[in-house]
């Protein structure tokens, strides 16, 4: 079992690195999908099969498809040269240093973590559903409103606006 976790983790990390360092947007997105699939394996191993399914269906499926559509609409795949000129090795230094500092911080925090042993068991989707629609009902409502706002916002922003002239410049 542990072997699967480590394999999935390594695949996820490597494909994520490929995704963020790639030049071609489509390739990066495919690597990202690979990473998400690997993470969904981890979810499964962490006794959350329902979440693993959601990860595949919504993340790797819906959201990434949205990305790919937009990327294709923008024809970014053809701009590798430009992408190359935007990234030079020096730019990686400072963010990498910052990230490694934070990683060290995380390690320190993990070292100090108290060990609590709770009996492990699979959490079934039923439990999640009951919790979702009882304890977190209000949050669900808010999430629904947020999704609605997202739909309207995306529609509004996505529509190509007509060029509006000032009323003095309009032709009568």
């Amino acid at each position: 079992m542990e072997v699967f976790f480590y394999i999935a983790a390594v695949i996820a990390i490597i494909s994520t690195i490929m995704a963020i360092s790639g030049r071609n947007a489509i390739h990066s997105l495919l690597f990202l999908i690979l990473s998400l699939l690997a993470i969904s394996v981890v979810f499964y191993l962490l006794d959350a099969p329902f979440i693993a399914a959601l990860e595949v269906i919504i993340y790797a499926g819906a959201i990434m498809v949205l990305f790919i559509f937009v990327t294709m609409m923008l024809n970014i795949g053809l701009e590798e040269k430009q992408e190359k000129s935007w990234i030079n090795p020096r730019m990686w230094i400072i963010p990498s240093i910052l990230a490694s500092i934070l990683l060290v911080d995380l390690l320190l925090a993990l070292k100090n973590m108290p060990t609590v042993v709770v009996g492990k068991q699979v959490i079934l989707p039923k439990q999640v559903g009951i919790s979702l629609f009882s304890t977190y009902l209000l949050a669900v409502e808010i999430a629904a409103i947020l999704l609605m706002a997202g739909v309207i916002g995306a529609y509004h922003l996505g529509s190509q606006k007509k060029k509006v002239l000032h009323r003095f410049l309009e032709k009568k």
């Binding site: 963010p95 910052l98 990230a99 500092i101 934070l102 911080d105 320190l108 925090a109």
Partner: peptide
């Protein structure tokens, strides 16, 4: 942002 987070977290951890 990231720099600020790094500073604050490092301070908290150390």
């Amino acid at each position: 942002f990231a720099f600020g987070i790094a500073v604050i977290l490092t301070y908290m951890m150390t």
